[in-house]
Design a protein around this nucleic acid. Sequence first.
DNA 1: CTGAAAGCGCTTACAG
DNA 2: CTGAAAGCGCTTACAG
Lengths: 340, 340
Amino acid sequence: MSKPTIVEVARLAGVSNSTVSRCINTPEKVERKTLARVRKVIEETGFRPNLLAQSFRRGRTDIVLVVIHNVGSSIFSDIIDGIRSVLGDRYSVILMESRSEKQGHSRFIDLLVARQVVGVILLCSSPPFSRRLVELDNFPRLPVVVGLEPISEDLASLPTVHIDNYQAAHDATRYLLDSGHNDIVFVSGERGSLITQDRERGFVDAMTQAGITGVPDRLVHSELSIQGGVGAAHRLLADKTRPTALFCANDDIALGIMSVAPRFGLRVPDDLSVMGFDDSPYAATANPPLSTVAQPAREIGERTARRLLRAMDTPDEPGEWTEILPHRLVIRQSTAPRLG
Amino acid sequence: MSKPTIVEVARLAGVSNSTVSRCINTPEKVERKTLARVRKVIEETGFRPNLLAQSFRRGRTDIVLVVIHNVGSSIFSDIIDGIRSVLGDRYSVILMESRSEKQGHSRFIDLLVARQVVGVILLCSSPPFSRRLVELDNFPRLPVVVGLEPISEDLASLPTVHIDNYQAAHDATRYLLDSGHNDIVFVSGERGSLITQDRERGFVDAMTQAGITGVPDRLVHSELSIQGGVGAAHRLLADKTRPTALFCANDDIALGIMSVAPRFGLRVPDDLSVMGFDDSPYAATANPPLSTVAQPAREIGERTARRLLRAMDTPDEPGEWTEILPHRLVIRQSTAPRLG
DNA sequence: CTGAAAGCGCTTACAG
DNA sequence: CTGAAAGCGCTTACAG
């Protein structure tokens, strides 16, 4: 009735626990006949090793923790696909949402230290998380790879996989400038996030190089969501002296803005060009379809996972190592040359 | 240097392991002075109980497994929010994507049996999963609650929280009929999923009650994604004898269809009414904004979690128990009275 | 190739 | 209120 243990299997097969254990973990070290007998008993009893006991005994699990900002964002979905395809069956991926990590109770630490995950993929390197990692005494022993976002100073020595956010923002801004816009605002992500900073620099530099002054005033911060975009739209589009083009830190912001533009009497792209970031599936379905900067999400996941595997195999290898993946401007119909 | 154990803490505090254990788990059973001393040592050493050892010893974890179809769908995001808000700090939520569950290797079983999760919330009751659950000998002992989807016959006795999908589809269809449409097609989800069946019945009944014949031919199956919608559009809109209204099993399908309607020379809603399902955040940002059926996602999560807590507290309580939450038609601009 | 034995870090009756 | 002791289900040197 109750679950069979290794002891029960050993008894039924007439061997020792050790041998059963070897049949599971190192079958090549067991004689063929013994192996067959034990496997038969395992089959018959439906024995499955208690992973909790296994992990406890070994002092390590087979769990890779992937930290994302939130479920419900398609970019994470694709990245996680990539991660799983590389990690395969040997590791279990468990997801943690950084937004659910409250100040007080630190499940994150619990997971890392107490639950003994074997590796971490951080798809959000924002301060609360990065700082917690550094607080860990045994931090250097735990393989961590950062994906999607660049690395914060806190985590100076972690391997990272991401696009060149500076250059991507520079390219997108350059494209808008080349379309005749000069009154451009960058609707950026959370202040202080590194990915935001890189993109802001790209935007500022492209604008400044085009001879535009007062560029820092052209940065508006927003939550990376539809609601954030709606809020930004209200702050930016009410005035008569509104910008002619908006470059947004992600597609959700852009979609939020586009959805309320008509309330301000604005048509996209005739009166207002809107550019997104990420190339989410919803960018292509927008009306007009959203111009954006595509990130190779799945590949970011694959490379991050490969790097993690390497870090788990050779923990002593130096960590510093950044892989830059190509971005791509995807020009659709939400952007157009400036009129007049 | 290495992590302190309970033994080390006991030694430093001059007490036994048992007492340290009690300080952690049942502090009210420890004398104030002893408790203070032990806590001080815990603080100083940075001791954290090894959760793996704890769980192993207790024969149970604090992990609640939530099975979703895929990360990247906003409805799951909201449901999970609701779940977490109810489960609070006492339990860890781990997410599993059903789409990543391959035929061969059964991580699902591993998690349930071997990793000893304390409860499961199934947000997808499609056959591969439901069947696996039933295969488990010890299944009755594991608290499982199904949310969002109705329950399959396989799982006859599980508690469930969802809207009345039959009635919701009936209402939406009724609304389209009342707007003068009678050439309506239901772009449904995967054949065989129960949620799909309920909705199909609602659609068929509403149509039939309106005196329309040949209704079963008006069901088209599609993947619940933008791509699925695009594919369905190509099958449905190319003909001269195209329907005047489409009712879609989720918003993504609807958005996919709307995005390609112009290629067929169709304007939404003038030439084609499109109705979605779920009221995802993207429904409101669509152009025209998408009419849809709203599900109370967050509340589904909350109620599911509450039901699970109850099931974990009183495992002997009979499982059969269905909670129906209200749905709501959200009429925006993608639907309009039939012209001509 | 196999077995006996120790032990991973906790918890939990059982005495006192 | 506290301690000594057993044991959860495995794995892993160590002998043979």
